[in-house]
Design a protein around this nucleic acid. Structure first.
Lengths: 340, 340
DNA sequence: ATGATCATGTAAAGCGCTTTACCAATCGCT
DNA sequence: AGCGATTGGTAAAGCGCTTTACATGATCAT
C-alpha cells in the first residue's frame, strides 16, 4: 500500500474543517478573529494534514517573497564567505530567506542576477562587487527594487550603502608603521579605481602628511585583491632600487602573497620587513609571524546591511550618506623597527 | 515626468503583438513553431518591453522552481564555504539558482529548512550536516523530495550520497607518518559518532595494522571539528604521561588548534612533533611550518552533488552506494622523524 | 468538390494563495 | 419593534504563467 499522499493545500484544510479557504487563509495570516472552537478546528486540521503554504503561490499573490538575494563575487573567498554568513544570520533572524549568487566577478553574471532577482524573485538585493563598473551595472541597480550596496561602491547608484571605514583603516596602519620608525613604505592595493583601494590609500597618505613625512617615499602598487597580485607586487616592490622597510597590504590575500614571496627569499617579516594587512578574516594569528592587521567588522556590516534592506523594502527613505562601519588595528608580530 | 512604468507581463507582450498569451508563452518555451515574422514580432516586443517571466508564477504553474537549496552548517567555515562555492558554480552551469541555508548546526534549523525548502520552495536539497542525528532529520530527509547528502552521512537515509574517501585519507596519513618513523601517534577527531571521524580513524588504524605496528600506541581524542577542540585535545595529548611524536588532525580547524598550542609551548611542528591535517582548504602552505595534509577534492564533490541532484530530480534511480571522492596526500613540512 | 492534413493560432482552466466585497445572523439599545 | 453594529463567515477576482482542448483557414491528394 503505497502512501503516495499529495501535499495538502489550503483548500484541503478548508474542506476538512467545513470552512471556506478565505476564512482559513485569514486565520493563518491573523487578519480575522474567530471563535475559539473554529480556531482549534483549523489548527488541528493544519497539524493533521501537515499543511504548509506554498511559497510560490504566496509570493505570486502577495507580490513579495520574504527572501533577499546576496550577490557576491566569490563565496570561497574567506572575506566574502564571512560577509555572506553574517548576512545570512541577520536575515534568518528577521525571517528572511537568502538566495546566494556568486558572480565570479563577471559583469554578465552581475547583470543577470540583478535582472533575475530584482525582477520578482526576491524582495531585495544585497550587492557586493569587486569590479569597477562602466555604468551598466549602476543603471541596473538603480532600476532594481530595494538594493543595498556593501563593501565596495558602485559609482552612480542611489542605493543604501554600507562600507568599512577604509580611510581610517589606512590611517591606523600608517600611524602604526610610522610609530615603529618606518619612513620608506609601500602600499599594495587592489584595482586603482576601486573605492576601497583609493580610500585606504588616502587614509594612509593623510597619516603620512599628518606626521610631516615625505609622501614621495611611499610607493603604490595596484592590481587586484588576490594572492597572485600580492606575489607580483611584492616582487616588484622588493626588486626596486630602494625597497621599502614596511608594507601595507590592502587585503589579507595580498598580504599572503607578500608572505609567500618573503618566505621564498628568506626575508623575515617583522624583522627585515614590516607588514600590515587589511580585513583580518583569515586566521592571521597563526601565520608566520602572526600578522598585524586592520580588522573589518564583518558581522556588523552584514547585520546592518539587512537592517537597511528592510528599511528599503518598507520604502523608507534611505539615508543619503553611506554608513561607515568602524575598523580596528589588531597588533600582532609583523611590525618591527625598520632595517636598511 | 516620473516614469513609474510597471513590470511587463506576458499579457503585455501578447497585447503588443496582437497575439494570445498562449502563443507567446509557447513560443518562449519553444513548444510551438511560428512563421518567421510572428517570431520576430514577439522577440522584438519582449526586447522592447524588457519582459522577463515572473519566476513565481512560473513555479506555481510548473510545479518546479529551477533552483536548489544548499543546507550547510556554517558558510564562514572555509571548508563549507568552498563546498558551497563549488555547488553554486555547478548549479549555475546547469541553469539552477541556489538557495543558501546555514543551520549553525542546530537541529531545529535543519528541520525547518528541510520543511520549507523541500515543500516546494526548491526542486531539491543538497544537505550537509555536522551533527549526529537522532533519527528525526533522517525521517525529514526521506520525506523530502530530491535530496543528496554530502560530506557527512545521516544514518538511515535513502538519499544519494557523496562523501570523501575518508578511510583512504586516514590510511594515507598513517602511512606517511609511519614511513617517517613514528610509532606513538594520536588521532584528533571530531564527534566520535560522526561517520567521517570514524572512517578516518578506521583508515588510520588499518594502515597501522598493515604495517604490523602496535595499535595500542595510538591514542584517540574526540570532540568536534573546531579550533576549540583542537586546543583542548592538543593540551590533553601533550600532557599525557607518554605524549605522541605525531598527530593526525581530522580537520584543518583541529590542526590549527594544535598549531596554536604548540606555538604557545614552544613545540616546533615538524621537528618536535609531526602533524598531518585533513581537508586542506585553508592556506595551509602559509602556516608555520607549511602543513602536510590530506586534501579533499571539494570542487569535485560540489560538482558531483549537483549532477546527482539532477538525476534525483529527474526521478532516476540513484545508485545505492555512496559515491566516494578521492583524497590526496599533500606533503609539506610538518612531518619529520620522531624525537623522544 | 471533398474530406484529410497541416499551419497558425485562440480560449480557458488551473497552479495555491490573498483579499475585497458581501452577506446572514445575532446582539444591544432605544 | 426597529435600528445599527458586531460576529462569523462566504464567493469570487486576481497574481502571471503553462497547457490542454479546440478553431480557423489554407493546402493537397483524390
Amino acid at each position: 500500500m503505497v502512501s503516495h499522499r499529495k501535499i495538502a493545500t489550503l483548500r484541503d484544510v478548508a474542506e476538512a474543517t467545513n470552512l471556506s479557504v478565505a476564512t482559513v487563509s485569514r486565520h493563518i495570516n491573523g487578519s480575522i478573529k474567530l471563535p475559539r472552537d473554529t480556531m482549534e478546528r483549523i489548527d488541528s486540521a493544519i497539524q493533521r494534514l501537515n499543511y504548509r503554504p506554498n511559497p510560490h503561490a504566496r509570493s505570486l499573490s502577495l507580490g513579495r517573497t520574504e527572501s533577499i538575494g546576496v550577490v557576491i563575487p566569490d563565496i570561497a573567498n574567506p572575506f566574502f564567505a564571512r560577509l555572506a554568513a553574517a548576512v545570512e544570520r541577520a536575515a534568518a533572524a528577521y525571517g528572511l530567506g537568502v538566495m546566494l549568487c556568486a558572480t565570479l566577478n563577471q559583469k554578465e553574471r552581475e547583470l543577470d542576477y540583478l535582472q533575475r532577482l530584482a525582477r520578482n524573485h526576491v524582495d531585495g538585493l544585497i550587492f557586493v562587487t569587486n569590479r569597477v563598473d562602466d555604468g551598466e551595472v549602476a543603471r541596473a541597480i538603480n532600476a532594481a527594487k530595494a538594493v543595498v550596496v556593501m563593501d565596495e561602491d558602485v559609482d552612480g547608484t542611489t542605493a543604501s550603502k554600507i562600507f568599512a571605514d577604509n580611510e581610517r583603516g589606512g590611517a591606523l596602519a600608517a600611524r602604526h608603521l610610522i610609530a615603529a620608525g618606518h619612513r620608506r613604505m609601500a602600499y599594495l592595493g587592489g584595482a586603482a579605481s576601486l573605492m576601497s583601494t583609493r580610500e585606504r590609500l588616502r587614509g594612509f597618505q593623510s597619516a603620512i602628511d599628518e606626521a610631516g613625512l615625505d609622501p614621495a617615499l611611499t610607493a603604490g602598487f595596484f592590481g587586484s585583491y588576490t594572492i597572485a597580485h600580492g606575489l607580483e607586487a611584492a616582487r616588484a616592490m622588493l626588486d626596486a632600487p630602494e625597497p621599502p622597510t614596511a608594507v601595507f597590504a590592502a587585503s589579507d590575500e595580498i598580504a599572503l602573497g607578500v608572505l609567500t614571496v618573503c618566505r621564498d627569499r628568506g626575508i623575515r617579516i617583522g624583522r627585515d620587513l614590516s607588514l600590515v594587512a587589511f580585513d583580518d578574516v583569515g586566521p592571521l594569528d597563526l601565520f608566520d609571524p602572526p600578522l598585524t592587521a586592520i580588522r573589518q567588522d564583518v558581522d556588523s556590516m552584514g547585520w546592518q546591511s539587512v537592517v537597511r534592506m528592510l528599511d528599503a523594502i518598507k520604502g523608507e527613505d534611505h539615508q543619503a550618506a553611506p554608513q561607515r562601519v568602524p575598523v580596528e588595528l589588531i597588533v600582532r608580530a609583523s611590525v618591527g623597527p625598520p632595517v636598511r
